[in-house]
Amino acid sequence: MPIEGDDELRDILELDTVAVVGCSSTPGKDAHEIPKYLRDHGYEVIPVNPFADEIFGREAADSLADVDEEIDIVDVFRPSEEVPEIVDAALERDDVDTVWMQLGIRDDDAAKRAEDAGKRVVQDRCMKVEYGRLMG
Rank of each mutant, 00 (worst) to 15 (best):
P2M: 11
I3W: 09
G5K: 14
G5N: 15
I12H: 12
E14W: 08
D16M: 12
D16A: 13
T17S: 15
A19N: 09
V21T: 13
S24N: 13
S24W: 14
P27R: 15
G28C: 14
G28K: 13
H32Y: 15
E33P: 11
E33V: 12
I34N: 12
P35S: 08
D40T: 04
H41A: 12
H41P: 05
Y43G: 06
P47C: 09
V48C: 04
E59T: 12
A60W: 07
S63I: 08
S63N: 10
L64F: 07
A65T: 06
V67A: 03
D68V: 11
E69P: 04
E70I: 00
V76D: 07
V76M: 00
R78F: 05
S80V: 09
E82Y: 11
E82A: 13
V83P: 10
E85Y: 11
D88N: 09
L91H: 04
D95Q: 01
V96K: 05
V96T: 07
V96Q: 01
D97K: 14
G104V: 04
G104C: 05
D108E: 13
D116R: 03
D116L: 03
G118K: 00
G118W: 03
R120M: 05
V121D: 02
V122E: 01
V122A: 02
D124N: 15
C126E: 09
E130Y: 01
L134N: 04
M135Q: 07
M135I: 12
